[in-house]
């Protein structure tokens, strides 16, 4: 049993699963990171993901192309973000609670739409696996990284893109300034709330794609409340990653690889109660962060609404 467990094939399998499982977390957490860097905590990721997942699913269900599904998820996600920004930025609502409201709204509305428009979940054909020609024949690396659907690859490409946007563009500079010291940014002519609208909508659009990566990428179906708390994990991973794209990547990979590991342990019959196995990724995420120590301070203006002229 244990020699089986340590075989190369198994290890490749674990890594392959980990890379794939990290996809929705990457989209959602990178998006959430932008919002938080500008000072807005969006706890409603879960609800946004579900709405995005349903939008993408339904678009494909009625005969649309999967790419059209992604577009639908982006639009619906951004609209949910607009709602969140309206409440949290303009109306300056408590961000923790408005996010819980947005989650309830998204969970409920997506289930309702499924029931009214589709009924029982019906399978669709979304993105299928696309092995990257050439790259997939590299031993070990190929089967781990290059045997996924297209949305998985895009998720990883978004890591360098996020790095670039955050640290090398004016928009990124504005985001960081607004999240660190909105008064100073404002005095330099940055429109604080406009930037926050931008980041929250961007983040929600990405949460929408995160949902799509499940409903038309990994699973090819929609089911009521199918994210099952994934959105909250994504928010947690932003903290794990210290508000940095690479940190988020490491967090998402760690969490999903351990999750893949515990699945393999169960499948190969390692004698451990399944409940305790399922617990592992959650436990390890905390332990790693606690042991590794984190000295990164959160954006100074996080969760603090901004009002001019005080």
């Amino acid at each position: 049993m244990f020699h089986e467990f340590l075989s190369v094939a198994t290890l490749i399998g674990i890594a392959n699963s980990g890379v794939r499982l990290a996809t929705p977390y990457l989209y959602a957490a990178l998006g959430e990171m932008f919002g938080q860097r500008s000072g807005v905590l969006n706890l409603g990721v879960e609800g946004v993901m579900l709405m995005g997942a349903f939008a993408a699913y339904y678009t494909v269900y009625i005969g649309g192309d999967p790419w059209l599904g992604v577009l639908a998820a982006i639009i619906v996600g951004a609209l949910m973000g607009l709602l969140m920004a309206l409440i949290s930025v303009t109306m300056q609502a408590q961000q923790g609670i408005s996010g819980i409201g947005l989650t309830l709204f998204g969970v409920g509305l997506s289930s309702l739409l499924l029931k009214v428009l589709v009924g029982s979940p019906i399978g669709i054909s979304g993105f299928s696996t696309w092995k990257v020609p050439g790259l997939n024949s590299i031993p070990v690396i190929g089967p781990i990284f290059f045997e996924h659907n297209i949305l998985v690859y895009i998720a990883y490409l978004l890591v360098p893109v996020s790095l670039y946007v955050l640290y090398r563009t004016t928009f990124g500079l504005k985001i960081r300034a607004v999240g660190q010291n909105p008064e100073a940014a404002d005095s330099l002519g940055v429109r604080v709330n406009a930037v926050r609208y931008g980041t929250v909508m961007l983040g929600s659009a990405m949460a929408g794609i995160a949902g799509a990566s499940l409903s038309i990428g990994l699973l090819n179906i929609f089911q009521e409340n199918m994210t099952n708390g994934l959105g909250f994990i994504a928010v947690a991973l932003v903290y794990f990653g210290g508000w940095r794209p690479l940190g988020v990547l490491i967090g998402a990979l760690l969490f999903s690889t351990v999750n893949a590991l515990q699945l393999w342990m169960q499948v190969l019959g390692v004698p451990i109660p399944s409940d305790l196995a399922v617990m592992m990724p959650y436990l390890l995420t905390i332990v790693v962060l606690a042991v590794g120590g984190q000295r990164i301070r959160q954006p100074a203006a996080l969760t603090k609404p901004y009002e001019r002229g005080e």
């Binding site: 699963s17 929705p24 699973l219 179906i221 089911q223 699945l263 169960q266 499948v267 190969l268 399922v278």
Partner: peptide, 20 residues
């Protein structure tokens, strides 16, 4: 090979379990 996801609604983990 038997695996449990630890929940009735965790579709993503169920999918990965199937992959595994």
């Amino acid at each position: 090979n038997v695996s449990f996801t630890g929940s009735f609604g965790d579709t993503a983990l169920a999918a990965e379990a199937a992959n595994t």
